[in-house]
Amino acid sequence: MKLYLHYLSIHLRSQMQYKTSFFLTVLGQFVGSFTFLLSILFLMDRFHTIKGFTTAQVLLCFGTVLMAFSIAECFFRGFDSFAGTISQGQFDRILLRPRSEVLLTLCSKAELSRIGRFAQAALVFAYAIPNSGVDWTWDKILTLAFMVLSGVALFSGLFVIYAAICFFTTEGLEFMNIFTDGGREFGSYPIAVYGERVLKIFTYVVPLALVQYYPFLYLVGQAEAWWYALTPLAAWIFLLPCALLWKVGLRHYKSTGS
């Protein structure tokens, strides 16, 4: 953990070398995801409710996923850009260090400019939490926090899978973005609005619905059963096959060039 903080401070110092670039990226991130927010607002302005959810409730959903995604992207960026790490031979250097490969890959990059997205997610929360009509008792607050944390775990797991595939292909596979960026966009609305089939995919294949939709039902009071609040656990279980795939990939690793 101490090592990770040290890395983080180095990354911060490096990125501060290019202040203008840093702030423009932060701004860009903010504006970029702002368009999603706007599209939700316009849509909700016309239809008022979607599948019985109010604007604030949809925004709560959006905020949860956006926040989880921005945290995951900020800290797990090393896995997201792993294709570059491998093809430029930097993974060799990681293997030459007496620490775990996962830790060092995690450390290898931190995209602090993602704070732009994070800030937006926080703003959305600031609006949505008081207006969503949820009776904020302790269990609901904990559920929301658990949802965000599990969302981070889920997206990190996806990044790890993405990275593990790079061991075999050396190049990143863009189709993985269906699940990462796609997951973020799908996650803007409660997943059930996309219909039964999409809901199933995001329940059984990638457990995004278990993080975002089912506990959300519990939050807004559409589902009474307490175990709906615990479904985000699936995201943590999802990490197991991700870790396994990573191990398999690592064994398969062949380094590039000289």
């Binding site: 040290h6 180095i10 110092r13 490096s14 070398q17 031979g89 930097q90 060799d92 250097r93 030459l96």
Partner: peptide, 29 residues
């Protein structure tokens, strides 16, 4: 072991050398 690849750097590009050295100190404990 220590390994030097002439064509690849192990130092962080944007920070003073000493910062890289201190990070290496923490990596190797």
């Amino acid at each position: 072991i220590g390994v030097v690849f002439g064509q690849r750097s192990q130092l962080w590009w944007d920070v003073p050398v000493l910062d890289s050295y201190e990070l290496i100190r923490d990596i190797y404990q």
